[in-house]
């Protein structure tokens, strides 16, 4: 278990670094997909199969497909790395170092306890559903209202740009 976790963690960190360091946006997106898939693999290694499946469907599937689709549609070119100014370099280094310092206590805690696989029943769909609809029913419903608001907002924005646009567009 520990070895699987270490391997997955290594891939996870490497792909996360690749997301920010690669210059081609599509390569970054693919690295992000790899990252999200490793998170799903970690869930699966912890016997939380339902979470793993949902992680793949929602993040690696739905969201990243839209990102890749847009990148292809807009045909974004490879970014040229800009030379960084001295002030910017110092500032970003300071921010990075302070964030790392903040993280060290958390890392300390995390590395001492390796996560154990969940209890056999806790990872099943039935157990997940029961918890979602009893203990976490309010956050669950609130999230669905939030998503509904986002859908309505998206439709509103799309409709407005259509009605204002003159000429072609048969809607």
């Amino acid at each position: 278990m520990t070895y699987i976790f270490l391997l997955l963690a290594l891939v996870m960190v490497a792909s996360a670094l690749a997301v920010v360091t690669l210059h081609n946006p599509l390569h970054s997106a693919l690295a992000l997909i790899l990252n999200l898939l490793t998170v799903a693999a970690l869930f699966a290694a912890l016997d939380a199969h339902f979470l793993a499946a949902v992680q793949i469907i929602v993040y690696a599937g739905a969201i990243m497909v839209l990102v890749v689709f847009l990148l292809m549609l807009l045909n974004i070119k490879t970014e040229k790395p800009k030379p960084m100014g001295k002030f910017l370099f110092v500032l970003s280094a300071a921010v990075g170092v302070s964030f790392l310092a903040l993280c060290i206590p958390a890392f300390n805690e995390a590395f001492r306890i390796f996560p154990d696989p969940v209890h056999e029943l806790e990872g099943t769909v039935k157990a997940m559903g029961r918890i979602l609809y009893t203990e976490y029913v309010f956050p669950f419903e609130a999230a669905s209202v939030l998503i509904l608001a986002a859908i309505v907002g998206a439709v509103m924005l799309a409709k407005r740009s259509y009605s204002k646009g003159s000429g072609h567009g048969s809607n």
Partner: peptide, 14 residues
Amino acid sequence: LDAGLLFIFAMGSM
């Protein structure tokens, strides 16, 4: 797997 059908759907989206 307990979530077999969901996993197939996940693979379909990949």
